[in-house]
Simulated scan of single mutants.
Amino acid sequence: MAKKPSVEFVLRPFEGLPGEPDWVALREVVPAATAPVRTTKEHGARDVVITTVLPAGWLALHRTDGTVLVALQNNAGSGDASRDVAAVLLAALELEPGSPLETAPPVEPGPRLQDVLDLSVPFEVTVHEGFDYWLGSDAEITSEVTASLEEANATIVPTRKLTAVDAAYWCRMGAREYLRWAMPHDEQQMIDALARLHAERESGIGDARFVGYFRACGVVVPVWDLAPGTEAEELEKPAQEFLTRFDRALADTSALDPAARRARAGLVARQVTLR
């Protein structure tokens, strides 16, 4: 019996897509957001909406108004998230209006998002306060639909996207606020830069304390613990100022001094990986 071809693991599945860090953020940390994409002419030049999640864990939804939504946060896993999402997207284009995609396509080699999408279209994220965007303008709002939305909205983590810098997301978890900032740079160079700043006591953003980082889809995501009550708009200028310092540290290719080496060891010891 012939062995089925397998899908190779890809550490940075969204590399090469416009807005790679935002793709990672929507897949891993943002609860409710959308971004429009368009398929290539080969795949029909169709407009599609990428979203974080869909009701009932659906992988995709072809709404009755013609809008096709594809969820990034799903359990389909071949080792290449780009291939998985592309397979879902292509299957979603074949759905009848009003139909969800509930089951993932078979795991097998196939086109990736980098092959399916028009890469000239920017990945422009809109963060939503709730999941009402699931419904089209002509959707039937029944009591069951209302109850489902209310349940989903009750669990949402308030999140805002900063406008002054790319792929940085403020969130409020209970009584605490955090900033999580996905960055596309080489991991080792980025950790060196963060270590230099941490050793120089310049790793904060305003009053926000840099507490470490995690890795998701091959992208490093630094995290800051904010002063209680900090709102997203208060971070815009401090984030720009941090980015200036970070770019300077990133450009420094000299050997780390002892303080920076100690800071680096501490950062690496605390980092975690998400998928």
Rank of each mutant, 00 (worst) to 15 (best):
P31D: 11
V116I: 06
K161H: 03
A269S: 13
V53Y: 01
I141A: 05
A216G: 04
E28A: 12
A152R: 11
W181C: 02
W134Q: 06
A152S: 09
Q188P: 05
I50G: 00
L256I: 12
G212S: 05
Q114M: 04
V70F: 06
G66M: 11
E187I: 14
G77R: 14
E236I: 07
I141Y: 12
R112L: 01
W134C: 06
Q271E: 15
V49C: 03
F131M: 06
Q114A: 14
T273N: 10
A255Q: 14
P184E: 11
P122E: 07
E124V: 11
A164Q: 05
D22G: 00
L226I: 04
N153A: 15
Q73N: 13
M190Y: 08
A154G: 10
P109D: 13
Y133M: 13
K161T: 01
D252R: 08
M1T: 02
D207W: 15
V88H: 05
L194Y: 07
L250M: 05
Q114E: 14
P238R: 09
Q271S: 12
V220A: 02
Y213P: 09
R245V: 08
R176I: 12
V272T: 12
F9T: 14
R112T: 04
S137L: 05
E144Y: 08
A32L: 11
T244E: 11
G174Y: 00
R176N: 15
T103S: 11
K161S: 09
V145T: 02
S137I: 01
L256H: 09
P55K: 02
E151S: 07
A259W: 15
S82C: 05
R264Y: 03
G266F: 03
R245I: 08
L256P: 04
R201N: 14
T146M: 10
A216Y: 05
L267A: 03
P238E: 10
P21G: 04
R83T: 14
E20K: 00
R201I: 08
T273A: 04
P184Q: 08
A249G: 04
A265V: 10
A269E: 09
S203Q: 14
I156V: 14
Q240F: 03
V37I: 08
L256A: 12
A255S: 13
S254C: 14
T163H: 02
A182T: 12
Q73M: 06
A182G: 03
P228C: 05
F131C: 12
A35V: 06
E15H: 06
A33V: 03
R209H: 11
T126L: 07
V165L: 09
G204D: 06
S120L: 11
S137F: 01
I156N: 06
A33K: 03
D47A: 06
A249V: 02
Y213F: 13
H128E: 09
T142F: 09
R112W: 00
E236R: 09
V211I: 13
L256N: 10
L119E: 10
L11V: 14
A260V: 06
P36V: 13
G110T: 02
A175E: 15
W224Q: 04
T159Y: 07
S78N: 03
R46A: 13
A168H: 13
A25C: 01
V7L: 03
R38G: 09
L95F: 08
P13L: 03
E20Y: 00
E233V: 14
